[in-house]
Measured scan of single mutants.
Amino acid sequence: MSGIALSRLAQERKAWRKDHPFGFVAVPTKNPDGTMNLMNWECAIPGKKGTPWEGGLFKLRMLFKDDYPSSPPKCKFEPPLFHPNVYPSGTVCLSILEEDKDWRPAITIKQILLGIQELLNEPNIQDPAQAEAYTIYCQNRVEYEKRVRAQAKKFAPS
């Protein structure tokens, strides 16, 4: 494992614990031996107030490669969400998460999670990743928002 990646992720964890947006979660997972795995984080993004996503808490896994922060983490909703920019596998399609697009090593975990929260309610229809959600979003916004509200209710924190 890269010392650069681990040191950056340790800084990220410290900064997150000191200050993070209300309702968001970002925690490194534990290895079988109980030690912390900084390369694999369990996160959760709350649906934004005043949107059909409100009330939901959407679980996301963030996986970092050894060359982080040169390369972005892979962000994957578990379980996958109904959304035009979420692949059926759950992987998020967002330009700041793509090395050859808008990724920059200075982007923080907090910025990534806030960017994904923004994307939930403002899909990028130029870059669809899920045919069904994309089609319904474009053709029947009322039905799309109904499905999103049902999903938010399903993923409401207990």
Rank of each mutant, 00 (worst) to 15 (best):
P28M: 05
L38N: 00
K65W: 03
K18A: 05
E132S: 07
V27W: 06
D102P: 02
S71T: 10
K49R: 14
V142Y: 14
H83Y: 00
A133M: 01
N40C: 05
I136W: 13
P28R: 08
R141M: 15
G55K: 09
N31I: 09
N85R: 03
E145V: 13
Y137A: 01
W53Y: 05
V148R: 02
R147V: 11
D100Y: 14
A156R: 13
V27K: 13
P88D: 15
R149G: 06
R141C: 11
I125N: 08
C138R: 12
T51Y: 04
F77W: 01
G47P: 01
P79R: 15
R149T: 09
R147C: 11
D33K: 02
I96H: 06
R149P: 05
P105H: 01
R147T: 14
P52C: 10
L114D: 09
D127S: 08
R8L: 15
A150T: 12
R61D: 11
A131T: 14
L94V: 15
L63Q: 14
N140V: 01
K59Q: 11
L6F: 10
A150R: 12
R147D: 01
E122Q: 12
T51I: 03
N37H: 12
F58M: 06
E12G: 02
G50A: 11
Y68D: 00
Q126A: 11
I136N: 07
K48G: 03
I96L: 11
F22R: 00
F24Q: 02
T91I: 14
P21L: 05
T108C: 14
V92P: 08
M62T: 08
A133E: 01
D100Q: 11
Y144D: 08
N40T: 09
C43L: 04
N121V: 13
L63W: 01
A5N: 12
W16D: 00
I4M: 13
D33N: 07
D100P: 09
G115Y: 05
K110S: 07
L119F: 15
K65M: 15
L81V: 12
C93G: 02
K59G: 08
L60R: 04
A10C: 01
I116A: 15
M39N: 10
F155Y: 12
K49F: 13
A129C: 04
R17A: 01
E78I: 10
L94I: 05
L38R: 00
L113Y: 08
A15I: 10
E143C: 11
D33A: 02
D100G: 13
V27S: 08
L38S: 01
K30G: 08
E145D: 13
V142D: 15
P73N: 02
Y68S: 04
F77K: 02
P88A: 14
K30C: 04
G34M: 08
F58E: 05
Q139D: 13
T29M: 12
K110N: 08
L6R: 05
T51K: 05
I109K: 00
Y87R: 01
K18T: 07
T51V: 01
E122Y: 11
T91R: 09
F24V: 05
P105K: 01
L6P: 07
A133G: 07
T108R: 15
K65D: 05
K14G: 03
S89D: 13
P80C: 06
R141E: 04
R141A: 10
S95I: 00
E12L: 04
W53H: 01
N31G: 06
W41V: 05
D66P: 12
E99M: 11
F64A: 03
Y144I: 03
G23P: 03
P69I: 01
H20Q: 00
L57I: 10
S158M: 14
R141N: 13
G47N: 03
P69F: 04
L113M: 11
I109N: 02
K74R: 14
D19K: 06
K110V: 10
P123H: 01
R13V: 01
Q151K: 05
G23H: 06
P128W: 04
I125E: 06
C138T: 15
V148T: 04
N37Y: 14
Y134I: 07
A131P: 10
K146M: 14
A156E: 13
F64T: 04
F77L: 06
N140C: 04
G3T: 08
S89H: 15
G90C: 07
V142K: 15
P84L: 15
G23D: 01
K101G: 09
Q151A: 03
P69K: 06
T135C: 15
R61F: 11
G3A: 04
M1W: 05
S89K: 11
W16I: 03
P21V: 00
Q126S: 13
N140M: 05
I45R: 06
F82W: 10
Y137F: 09
Q11A: 15
K48R: 13
D102Y: 09
K14M: 05
V27N: 08
G34L: 06
D33S: 02
E42A: 14
A152C: 03
K48C: 06
P123I: 04
L9Y: 12
P72R: 06
G34S: 06
F22V: 04
P32Y: 13
D19P: 05
K74P: 08
I109A: 12
I107N: 14
F77G: 00
E78R: 14
D67P: 10
T35H: 06
I109L: 11
L97K: 02
Q11M: 13
C43T: 15
